[in-house]
């Protein structure tokens, strides 16, 4: 009887390859939709145009060039930190797709992580296309980051995605208690819009608001990685520390809620 089972890193690697491969193949089937999603993420570029017209001065903490670079960097960070796990999870639960996953020896949230990473890979060509367009219409807004800043920027973006994923996963666990947990996601969207730095760099905020924002995870989801990528002076240790701290706080919360939620799971629609 053949009972060989892969274990350890070899199993993890094979699993990651299989999950990412299948998710990437699925995402390619929806590439037109993903291009539109990528296009819908141009808010930072719109804000760039708005703020350029508003005539930001050095007194606001940023000159025009810095502002350009910040919003282009924010656009790039946003493209790779978008999270939609609540919506997918809710749909999968309502349509009974979650049930077979719960009966397999793999925490189902990993499937959503793989789907997000695959979606990011599918977005990449469209994002590069946008950058090409920016290079044509507003070349002054582009810059060449140093290799270390590029590396740190990618790392900060990846950590921001992880924290954003965990943050939305907390809301997602509400799917075990309510059929419309996605409505709760709006609770995250509004503070994200105002506190992440997607509408305006934190440097332009009044001091009190800026301090309040920094006490939440939102600036670390966009403002911090964008400034790292843009080559601006930034508290690297504090920023990465905050990202790791939020991840360390949210991960056990998600897993705890998961355990409680699964006990309540009614397997409706399945």
């Amino acid at each position: 009887m053949s009972r060989r089972r892969l274990r350890g890193p070899r199993h993890g690697l094979r699993l990651a390859r299989a999950l990412l491969g299948s998710q990437y193949a699925t995402m390619l089937e929806y590439r037109a939709e993903i291009a539109l999603w990528a296009l819908s993420g141009v808010l930072p570029l719109i804000m760039l145009a708005v703020w350029s017209q508003a005539g930001v001065t050095a007194a606001d903490g940023l000159d025009a060039g810095q502002l350009d670079r910040y919003f282009v960097a924010a656009f790039l960070v946003r493209q790779f930190t978008v999270v939609w796990v609540t919506y997918s999870f809710e749909e999968d639960q309502l349509h009974g797709r979650l049930s077979p996953w719960l009966l397999q020896p793999l925490q189902p949230l990993w499937r959503y992580v793989a789907a997000h990473v695959a979606e990011q890979a599918t977005r990449l060509p469209f994002v590069l296309l946008f950058v090409g367009v920016i290079a044509l219409v507003h070349p002054a807004a582009l810059w060449l980051p140093s290799p270390e800043r590029l590396l740190l920027g990618v790392l900060a973006t990846w950590l921001a995605f992880a924290v954003n994923f965990l943050l939305q996963s907390v809301i997602t666990m509400g799917c075990f208690w309510t059929e419309r947990a996605s409505a709760l996601d709006r609770l995250l969207f509004i503070p994200y819009l105002f506190l992440s730095g997607i509408s305006a760099p934190l440097e332009t905020f009044p001091e009190g608001v800026r301090r309040l924002a920094l006490a939440t995870p939102f600036p670390y989801l966009l403002h911090f990685p964008a400034r790292v990528l843009a080559g601006e002076s930034v508290d690297l240790l504090g920023g990465f520390g905050a990202l790791l701290g939020w991840a360390a706080l949210l991960l056990p919360l998600v897993l705890g809620l998961w355990r409680l939620g699964v006990r309540r799971y009614g397997a409706m629609g399945a």
């Binding site: 060989r4 299989a18 299948s22 699925t26 089937e29 797709r97 397999q104």
Partner: peptide, 24 residues
């Protein structure tokens, strides 16, 4: 109900299942 990935051939889903269950 189905567990197979709708847009892909069954072999893709089988490959994922094999990896999930640790089959070489």
């Amino acid at each position: 109900k189905q567990q197979l990935i709708w847009d892909l051939p069954p072999l893709d889903s089988l490959r994922v299942n094999a990896a999930v269950y640790g089959l070489d």
